[in-house]
């Protein structure tokens, strides 16, 4: 097994295709063309685990945007006496980290023109990345609220008003400047649910709240002892990719 690149100096580079193909490199965990002859050795970092989200400052949102998104996700998934809402579940953190990463940049997607985003029946055709859509839509939401609620921001209006406005975005009754209110609602709702139910590694689903709420045991990988125990409640608590609280003994 040898890397092709080792004799690259002797090869003629096709410039146009070269620039294009070099764009692949960022798309894959494993970087370069390989010639495989014989079984490749186990390569422990070639297919890396997820990049675990760390607490800390917002990576994509401005402070004002973050306040609005936290207020939005907390209405899409409101807190109740048993289970945290979107804000405490970390949905805004999840969205922030997603938008700061490859997802936010539409990495790997086909983004060549022409864009016909008036068509609604042939798949998404927006020229904008998710990061751009959030930025524009949150600015539009800000502007709308300022006008409609006497200078107040979305986070400052009463919950009932928030729900009314979200409903109006959903139905298309309220349009935002420079962006589709309904399109933003759909994107936000999808990302919020992702944040509520994805592995906590990504910053949402804090304390596995989404999983505990529905009874999903998470990243467990072996149910052979339970496959024929029909109509019984599965007894074990959820675990995540990075483990479970009960696996780590408390110090002291």
């Amino acid at each position: 097994m040898g890397k092709r690149a080792s004799t690259a100096a002797t090869r003629r580079r096709t410039l146009l295709a070269g620039a294009a193909a070099a764009g692949f490199l960022g798309l894959f965990t494993r970087g370069n063309a390989l010639e495989l002859q014989g079984m490749p050795a186990w390569d422990p970092l070639s297919g890396p685990p997820p990049d675990i989200v760390k607490p800390g400052p917002w990576q994509f949102f401005t402070a004002e945007e973050a306040v609005a998104v936290e207020a939005l996700v907390d209405r899409l998934i409101p807190p109740d006496p048993h289970w945290a809402g979107g804000k405490d579940a970390g949905c805004a953190v999840f969205i922030d980290r997603q938008l700061a990463g490859p997802y936010g940049r539409s990495e790997g997607l086909y983004m060549r023109p022409p864009f016909d985003d008036t068509a609604t029946d042939r798949g998404p055709q927006s020229p904008f990345t998710p990061a751009q859509r959030y930025r524009r839509s949150l600015a539009g939401l800000d502007k709308h609220c300022e006008g409609a609620y006497a200078g107040k921001s979305f986070a400052q209006i009463p919950d009932a008003e928030k729900d009314k406005l979200i409903g109006a975005l959903q139905s298309g009754a309220v349009a935002l400047e420079d962006s589709s209110g309904r399109g933003f609602f759909e994107l936000l709702l999808q990302n919020t649910k992702e944040g509520f139910f994805a592995d906590p590694a990504y910053g949402g689903n804090r304390d596995m709240v989404g999983w505990r709420m529905i009874g999903f045991p998470g990243a467990r990988y072996d149910y052979r002892d339970w496959i024929e125990r029909h109509n019984e409640t599965y007894p074990r608590p959820p675990v995540a990719i990075s483990g479970a609280p009960q696996w780590t003994p408390r110090q002291g």
Partner: peptide
């Protein structure tokens, strides 16, 4: 066209169960 993949490197039981990814 795509990369080499194998079980132990690319989808080990430690993180294969990732719905989002």
């Amino acid at each position: 066209r795509g990369p080499w993949r194998d079980t132990s490197s690319d989808f080990p039981v430690t993180h294969a169960q990732d719905e989002l990814r």
